[in-house]
Write a protein that binds this DNA or RNA. Structure first.
Lengths: 127, 127
DNA sequence: TTCACTGCAAATGCTTTGCAGCGCC
DNA sequence: GGCGCTGCAAAGCATTTGCAGTGAA
């Protein structure tokens, strides 16, 4: 438990949305914290490995991270402009995914379900 | 319509699975076709822009391409080992995505729904 | 004191781009 | 003949890694 890890944790706590490593690095420096870029990468990866943060990929294929409020499996409704995220659940989708996998003989399955759009604010700001 | 575009098209036709640009480039050379890497990138991007190929992101965030048999919107069941893909449909999921977006006031929505697993062959080969 | 963590800088790998030349129309 | 397409090489970026120094326990 080092100063850098605490800084990353605290900064993540203040964010509601998914951020890339680069973005988090910038935010750390805005807060006056001193963490190198390489360390930011390392910390986020280790947190993801330990299941302390959610990881997914944005439209550009970059890994984006977020400390999630809820513990169990869920999906996201993401704003493609500002990154705002809403956590959503979809029991029916889970079941559908499991059924499809079984039907085609796939094992060891996981799935990604993300919805991208413009959040209400960005929709309004578009004009 | 150049020799290179024809070569890319023909190679895509022979593939059932999603390939990254790098992989397609290798396959082109295995076939004895001469297309530079930069051109392969350019051709795949323009085909994607024109809707001639499906694009999605693999687990590593790389763009992967495939000429799809079916025209309309659909999803995939992907083998994380060999890349084999099965096209699947999910009307219920489409509706669910639309409903979620509406509920939270998101506009201009799109969604990604992909299921990853081990296909029957790779499951058997695992032993 | 020890060993994991960090910072720096170089390396890596994928992707994009500038530019000159070739070839399709 | 003109203009778009291609190849090459260099540039760009995000990410990773080697290594020596630092700091937490």
């Amino acid at each position: 438990m080092t100063k850098q890890r605490r800084a990353v944790g605290a900064t993540l706590d203040e964010l509601d949305d998914f951020v890339s490593t680069q973005e988090l690095y910038r935010k750390l420096h805005e807060r006056g914290e001193s963490v190198s870029l390489a360390t930011t990468y390392r910390i986020l990866q280790s947190m993801a490995d330990d299941g302390l943060v959610d990881v997914l990929r944005n439209g550009e294929g970059e890994a984006v991270y977020r400390r999630c409020a809820v513990e169990h499996h869920h999906h996201h409704l993401l704003c493609r402009k500002c990154g705002r995220a809403v956590e959503i659940e979809a029991p029916a989708v889970e079941q559908w995914a499991a059924r499809m996998a079984r039907e085609y003989g796939y094992t060891d399955v996981a799935h990604t379900v993300e919805i991208y759009g413009l959040c209400p604010e960005c929709t309004a700001a578009k004009d």
